[in-house]
Amino acid sequence: MRQNDIMGDVAGALRLLTRLPLPHSAHIPGPGAAWAWPLVGVVVGGIAALVAMVPVGAGVAAGLVLGVQAMLTGAMHEDGLADTADGLWGGWDKARRLAIMKDSHIGTYGVMALLVVGLVRWSALVAVIGAGAWWGVVVVAVVSRAPMAVLMAAMESARGAGLAHAVGMVPRPSAGVAVLIAVGFALTLGAAGVWLLVCVGAVVLALARVAQAKIGGQTGDICGASQQLAEAAGLVVLATLV
């Protein structure tokens, strides 16, 4: 892969997964560029780690981190989590579940998912920030974005439309590179990084099994939910072990 291709894929990943004011480019990365999605976590996680260092107390800093991350990404992953919860648990068949997930309104399941997962992330961040584990915030941001590429490589599109379908099925080698990047970052944390990978893998596998059973594949919302759940799991591991 040429250097220009690498930089184009990284820039394309940032345009897809963040709301950063990047210059327009005629280069439109295909699904093979999904390998770069974890690198978006370096930027989002790096900015979040800087915010976490603000001397306002761990609780306030954790709240600011969550807010800044949502602004940087346009809250697209949070939106995916809410739609996933509403759809998977609010419909009685595949068609109805997909229709609910596409609806822009939020239901009770979505509100509860945002509340519970948000509280878990905040509580874990308080402990991580209190321990001064700034690098861990970056690592979790990186690792939590690899499962999106894996799900899109391993599962069929359930809807046949939407963002995930538009991106296309991710080639398995690209998903493999995304995983390798995530593993490389996680291992910088030593044993905690190994447990982080195990727990993130277990949570994402559970989500994939439920999605396959209820809607027959993945959607952009499922991928967004995987990021949120992976981040929550990773932060819990760090809060426990740091």
Rank of each mutant, 00 (worst) to 15 (best):
D5S: 02
D5A: 07
A11N: 07
G12C: 05
L16N: 07
T18N: 05
S25H: 12
H27C: 04
L39M: 14
V40T: 09
G45H: 06
G46N: 13
G46C: 13
A52M: 06
V54A: 12
A58E: 14
G59P: 12
V65I: 05
V68K: 02
Q69V: 15
T73Q: 04
G74M: 10
A75D: 05
L81Q: 07
A82Y: 12
D83F: 05
A85G: 10
W89L: 15
D93V: 11
M101A: 05
K102C: 02
D103R: 06
S104A: 09
S104R: 03
T108F: 15
G110Y: 14
G110I: 11
L115T: 15
V117Y: 13
V120M: 14
R121S: 13
W122R: 09
V126W: 06
A127D: 14
A127L: 12
G132D: 02
A133D: 02
A133Y: 00
A133V: 01
W135M: 11
W135N: 04
V138L: 07
S144T: 07
R145W: 05
P147W: 03
M152H: 03
E156G: 10
S157F: 00
A161Q: 08
A161G: 01
G162P: 07
L163Q: 10
A164N: 04
A164H: 04
L189C: 00
A191Y: 08
A191I: 10
A192T: 05
V194Y: 09
L196H: 13
L196W: 14
L207M: 06
Q212W: 06
A213F: 03
K214P: 14
K214S: 13
I215E: 00
I215L: 05
G216K: 01
T219Q: 04
I222N: 02
I222D: 02
I222R: 01
S226G: 08
S226P: 12
Q228R: 07
Q228P: 15
L235W: 13
L238V: 07
L241I: 15
L241G: 08
V242G: 10
